[in-house]
Amino acid sequence: MDAEERVELAVELLAHVEADELPLSDVVDRIETVTTNPTLTRDILDAAELRGVIDREGGTIRTRRGGTYVRFEEQVVRREGEFDCRRCGASISTGHFVRFETGELGPFGSSCIRKVLGRE
């Protein structure tokens, strides 16, 4: 996946965050499931702000797209196999993958998928 694809996938992930407001550290935690490159992380935040997905105010990020939550039944796919969670690095036998229009993000364990999507 190239840098442009990572930016698109991360912006779409941010567009589906289920919280109205998050600390920047929580947003970066989600972005790190796509990239850990600090320059690319800044590019993602800039792109999300330019597209009206988020507003940045100091260390707080406000989401601007209500109602675009991930539908677990339709957008989260479970696969059996040997995986490492993209968020915490744990070995998992059931991977949860989120299908976005721009691509697929995962695998995640059952608790990490909820954290990435803002359900915990």
Score class of each variant (00 low, 15 high):
85 C>G: 05
8 E>G: 02
17 V>H: 11
66 G>P: 09
27 V>G: 08
33 T>A: 14
110 S>Y: 05
75 Q>T: 08
83 F>G: 03
49 E>Q: 15
57 E>T: 12
11 V>G: 04
62 R>V: 04
29 D>K: 07
41 T>S: 01
16 H>I: 00
36 T>F: 00
52 G>R: 07
84 D>I: 08
107 P>I: 12
117 L>S: 09
58 G>Y: 11
48 A>S: 12
102 T>L: 06
19 A>M: 11
3 A>D: 14
12 E>L: 05
109 G>A: 09
107 P>T: 11
38 P>K: 06
87 R>P: 04
30 R>A: 12
65 R>N: 13
106 G>N: 05
91 S>E: 15
14 L>F: 07
73 E>D: 15
73 E>P: 00
89 G>A: 06
71 R>N: 15
34 V>Q: 05
12 E>M: 05
15 A>T: 00
9 L>I: 13
21 E>C: 09
12 E>S: 06
115 K>T: 13
67 G>R: 10
18 E>R: 14
85 C>A: 02
22 L>H: 02
38 P>Y: 02
18 E>V: 10
5 E>P: 00
64 R>G: 03
16 H>V: 08
97 F>M: 03
106 G>E: 05
31 I>A: 01
55 D>F: 08
11 V>D: 01
120 E>S: 12
113 I>W: 14
84 D>N: 13
31 I>Y: 00
104 E>P: 02
7 V>D: 00
80 E>C: 00
10 A>P: 03
109 G>H: 10
89 G>D: 03
42 R>M: 10
48 A>P: 07
56 R>I: 14
25 S>T: 12
41 T>G: 02
57 E>D: 15
86 R>T: 06
102 T>F: 03
45 L>W: 10
97 F>E: 01
118 G>P: 11
119 R>E: 15
54 I>F: 03
64 R>Y: 02
110 S>D: 15
68 T>L: 14
39 T>N: 09
79 R>G: 01
35 T>I: 08
112 C>S: 10
34 V>K: 06
100 F>R: 04
13 L>N: 06
41 T>Q: 14
91 S>Q: 12
43 D>P: 00
88 C>L: 10
7 V>M: 01
41 T>R: 11
14 L>I: 08
5 E>I: 01
96 H>M: 01
118 G>E: 08
76 V>E: 07
63 T>V: 14
73 E>W: 06
74 E>I: 06
99 R>D: 11
